[in-house]
Every structure is written in C-alpha cells, then in structure tokens.
Write a protein that binds this DNA or RNA. Structure first.
Lengths: 223, 223
DNA sequence: TATAAATAATAGTATTACTATTATAAATAA
DNA sequence: TTATTTATAATAGTAATACTATTATTTATA
C-alpha cells in the first residue's frame, strides 16, 4: 500500500502552501537535508536556493523567513506523531502497553514506510532533537502563539496526558509530565550523542538508553 | 557583609576577561539587560555598543561573537549555582532536605543579596530559562565541547547526581535525572509563562508550580 | 488562443557580523 | 618627568544575511 501523509499545517506558518506545488515540495525536501547538514543557524534561504536549484525570491513566496520554515517542519513532525499515536494505539487495551508505545514513539527513530519517501524521517527526527525548542524559545512566542502555531504540539501533549490520566487518574501533573517526556526525549538523546557526561549512558546500556530512562521515570511518576 | 562573586570562567570563552576592566563589566551588565529585553536572536553587538556607550569594535576585543558572550553568562550562572549549592547544603544532614534545597535552587529566582548587584539575578534567571539551551544546541557543539566550555554544567550535573545517589544508591540514572531536572526546571517555567496548556498550572497551584512538579517527579524517581 | 498564475532572473537595500587602521586617552615603567 | 605600553574610541570598510521589488519567461487553465 502506497500512501503519502499530508497534514494541513496552520496557514499562518506559510505564505503559500509548499505541499501544493513541486517547487514547494522541493523546498521542503532540501530544507530538511540542509538544516540537518549545517544546522539551523548556518541555514539560509540563499544556500537553500542553491541546493534546491531555485532562487531566493521563489522561496520567499512560500515562507516569510527561515523560522517559519523550521516551524513548518516541526509542526509536520508534531502532526505526524499525533497520527502515529492513534495508529499504533489502535486496538491496544493494556494501559501500560499504551504508554510504552508512546515513549517508543517519542524516543525511537521515526517509523518509516519501506518505499522512498518525500520526507527523510531520520533527518527530521535529528532536526527535532537539535532544533525544535528554537521555534518557541523566541521573544515573540506570545504573538505567534496567538495564531495557534503551537496547537499541534499542545494537542499531542494533551493526547499523551490523557493516556497518563487513564493509567493513573489520581496523578495531577499529566500535562507537565507529558511535555517533560517530550522534551526529555530530545534533550537526553542530544546529550547521549554530544555530551554523554550529562547522562548515564555506557557501552552496555547504549541501545535505547533514552527510552529506558524515560520508561523508568514516567512509570514511577505515574505509580 | 559585602562581597562580590567572581568565578573564573573558561578562558576559551572570552578574548579578554570582561571582569578585568570597567568596560568589560559594563559590557556584561548591559548585555544581560539587553538580552533579557529583546531576546538573544535580536541582540547584536551594535545595539549593545549603543546602550553600553561604547563601540562595536571595543566589544569585539572581549568576545569573539555573541554566542560566546551568551556562553559566558550561562557559564557564570552554572558556576553560581554550583557555589550556592555548596553554600546552602552546608551543615544539612537530612538527605531529603538536601534534594529539596537543590530543586528550589533550580526553580526559584536566584537568591540575591539585598544591596545593588553588578549582575541582575532575576534577568539572568530569565535568560537561563529562555536562552541557555541555545549554547549547546549548535552544530559545532563537539568542537566547543573540546575546550571544556561545558565543564561547569557537567560539574553541576554531577554534583546534583551525587546527592541523588546518596539518597538512593540503587538508582541507576542519577546523572540523567540530574540533567533532566535542570532542563525541566527551565522548560516548565517557560511553559508556565508562555504556553501554560503544556503544563498543569492553574490559579491555585500557580505559586511554585515548577518546584512542586519537579519535587514530585524527582522523589518518585528516586523512591 | 488568450489570460492568468507561477517561477526565474535580476537588482537593490538595510542590517548583521565581523576586520582593520589610526587616533587618543590612561596607566605604568624608565 | 617623559617615554612607552596598553586600552579604548573613532572611523572605515567588507562579505554575508535577510529581506523587497521589478520585470521577463514559462506553465497551467479558461
């Protein structure tokens, strides 16, 4: 079964829907490759224009600036996770199992269909780990928040919180635990890769370290 | 008792020690004010030169770029926390009490002497919350890490981890719990202020929310 | 085939992130 | 005291960034 996932991303994020044209898709594809490769700070529309074989001005017709483009990618990820959550939780009744699946979704590389994808999922996951907090750690967070650009993040957070509440109705910090789990999944993964002294990774537990830590943390919190 | 706290910050972070001259101190003071006011992305040496009543080129003699200047401020904060930890933990024997003091240090506004300070502690705390992750979420993290610029962060993390280990020697994720506590203190505080739907704050628990959540999380993890 | 829409090509601007040079003021050493 | 070093200020300049605007050309649709 072939299918491509398209999520309707908030219209305030783009000037022109990049999913609506070949050039738009090309811009998205290459921005993911380029941000992954050189990092968000070094990433510019000029460099993107070169690799996407288009012009700066053409890119500006899709996105106001590179921050919005990053926000688009991160939003796509949040929507994707939300979708995968529903998908993978379907028909699972065991509450503990449900939470384990959630934590795997947060920490593992993104599940990918076998066939060639428009979106490089591994790259997106690494971008989310290293760059996602930059979309809200900005001075105009309150302003852009009014346009509901963080809605998918909040919905994902709420959905996970609901499963936590379902597991233990007495627990009062379900949403904070949810946002903490999401952020910790990124932080710890980044630390494991770049600053391992901030973690307890070692050669033995290297595999799935972030998951193992998170599972321990979350289930104890919910106990 | 009047005293001023000076920490020797890693020499790779600055070109010329800003603590060594009036201009240097002026640069630090105004950079804290300005980063707090307009955010790190909008902050430039040109703007800083204007408010500090000096020139761009003079600032460049102290710091290579604004990233290094931010790193200096964040490093100062890490050293300060490390110092305050020793200071406040002195003579405390109760292990639970010790951890509570640590979590208060991480979440509360920084304790401040009554008299006029060179460093605006409230501003520094807000800068740490909103900007600190930007010092390591960069493409050249591995390179700058070689110069030990994150040593104070790692030491702080290790010191807190030690208290966790002391509280429960069987717990195997002390360092990850420590870095998670530090990061969560910032994240949740940011969310409470700007994106409260990602947390469980409400009018009742507003006061010390982040502390209350963290205390619950950490003690359950260590139980 | 005409017309509209999308894209490319080109040009241009203000700001950013620097580097370099020289002048002047302040601190210290001979 | 004068000479000399050192710090800072003033000035200039550059490459890159982050855009905006205009016109030409291609592509899609009526």
């Amino acid at each position: 079964m072939e299918f491509s996932l398209t999520f309707k991303v908030n219209e305030h994020i783009y000037l022109r829907n990049p999913e609506s044209s070949d050039l738009g898709k090309k811009i998205l594809k290459h921005s993911i490759d380029l941000i992954y490769e050189i990092g968000f700070e070094q990433f510019t529309f000029k460099k993107l224009a070169t690799v996407a074989e288009t012009t700066e001005s053409s890119i500006y017709r899709y996105f106001e600036n590179k921050q919005k483009l990053l926000l688009y990618i991160i939003n796509w990820y949040w929507c994707y996770l939300d979708f995968m959550l529903d998908y993978q939780l379907k028909n699972i009744t065991d509450k503990k199992e449900k939470i384990k699946i959630i934590l795997h979704l947060l920490t593992d590389e993104m599940p990918s269909n076998n066939h060639e994808m428009e979106m490089n999922k591994y790259f997106i996951h690494r971008i989310v780990i290293a760059e996602s907090s930059k979309v809200y750690l900005v001075k105009d967070v309150n302003e852009i928040n009014q346009y509901e650009v963080f809605k998918p993040f909040k919905e994902l957070c709420a959905k996970i919180a609901k499963e936590f509440a379902d597991y233990n109705p007495a627990y009062i910090f379900t949403k904070s635990l949810s946002s903490t789990a999401i952020e910790t999944a990124h932080d710890q993964e980044f630390f494991v890769t770049h600053l391992p002294r901030l973690t307890d990774v070692n050669t033995k537990n290297k595999k799935n370290f972030t998951y193992t830590f998170l599972e321990d943390l979350v289930f104890k919190a919910l106990a």
